[in-house]
Amino acid sequence: MSDTVTMEVLRYRPEEETEPTYESFEVPVQPEWMILDGLNHIKDQLDGSLSYRWACRMGVCGSCGMLVNGRPVLTCATYMESLLPGPIRVEPLRGFPVIRDLVGDITDFMGKLAAVKPYIVREEEKPVEEGEYLQTPEELAEYKQYSMCINCMLCYSACPIYRIEPDFIGPAAIALAQRYNLDSRDEGAQERMDVLSQHAGIWGCTLVGECSEVCPKDVDPAGAIQRYKVSATVDFFKSVLMPWRKE
């Protein structure tokens, strides 16, 4: 086994260059090291100017997502050993404009996330004295899978539709909309449907399915979108066939 591996890291320094370049670093390989440890080694020992995002090192914060050998992964959860003998190519996530090196601009995603109201919406809030909104384990199980999302944006990076049609609201936002729609305490499904029943919402998706493949938390956004299409269709035909039904 080799003691070092070459990491080809995308560099983009807008004050110096108009196009990104790749810079190679020789990084020692240790059995327990993740890609993120390799990047930290580069920043600490070889070139302190390398920019990238990370925080928790344990697959919870969702900030260290990058393209490793062309595949969107959490760099804190990908063993360097699994990619030997290398070289290992590290690039920023696809689909987001690059600000510097491995850092993408996620403003677009943040706006889309807010648009689907990823929080419990009530028509009328219950007074605090009346206590909590109770929920059974079965009701929890309805949406639990979708609540595992850590907003790491790997699904956006895997989705070709998001890159082709930047208006597409995207996998994670739709999965999170579904997470709240399926929550027994929530009453905001209709408001979310108004946002999502557009072409840029669920209908833009053609089920490439890669979002669910790369999801590190098994959220299955592709499945969430298909379920949403079914319920939007059922909803539509109900409102056409039974127009007297309350909106």
Partner: peptide
Amino acid sequence: MRARRSREPILWALFGG
């Protein structure tokens, strides 16, 4: 509420069927 009148559900139902 206008948004719900999108034609996509009909087209998608035909596609699915």
